[in-house]
Amino acid sequence: MMRRTHPALSAWAWLVYGFLYLPILVLIIFSFNDSKFGGTWAGFTTKWYGVLLAREDVREALTNTLLVALSSTLISTVLGTLVGLGLWRYSTRFRLPLTFLLVTPIVIPDVVMGVSLLMFYSLVRGGLELTGWTFENGFWTVMFAHVTFQISYVALTVRSRLAGYDRSLEEAARDLGASSVQSFLRVILPLALPGVLAGALLAFTLSLDDFVVTYFTSGSGFRTLPVLIYTSVKKGVTPDINALSTLLVLVTVVAIIAANAIMRPRPGRRGEA
């Protein structure tokens, strides 16, 4: 039932798409520009990637970023999958407040999340100091903060993956002699797996890309790539940052396309019932 779209509408749509991709394209082009100051094209080069990889601080930030992303994704995937499963399985009167709670980390400005965690950590530190313990803001504080905004994405992806399935599947497994753990492992997890993987990929990307929350929770000694980019940008544009940004964009694009591909074959929804 396809309707013809007005040529003006098509033209407008492609203009908007152009607008969306122009900066990314420019970024990529400039990362190969053999000019220290950008602006003008001075020939093709890959040297900025070399410069980038030679930078000690970049390598350290990369390690930090990956460590945070991997561990936070691991935790949030487990927690988020369980939440998604619960959302699918139980229709409780807490459903609306629960959804509200899950949507909140997604919609509140990340500045708010960042500063509230900053104060939370400082208060916890104050409390711990009374007992003689202490900690620095760094890997752990950033990682926990990331888990907080990742959970919702994983939970909602898993829930939407399971949404097409009959809730009595689990009862059927129990009825056929599976314990609740067995029915989770043999029936529910295989069905939810694409959702779990897609959710994990989204969570990983989010962690990789996060700047604001990391900025407020990382303290001075711990930098991730986005924080490093921010600091550099504040100092002035350098071509190696273009190269770094290009790499990050690339990783994200691959992750998103993968997540999309995993989720695409939707479950065969109910029978004809």
Partner: peptide, 16 residues
């Protein structure tokens, strides 16, 4: 895709 790419980078690209 642009929605998921790094916010900071997207903004930064406009400087260029």
């Amino acid at each position: 895709i642009p929605f998921w790419t790094n916010f900071l980078i997207r903004v930064y690209a406009w400087i260029l």
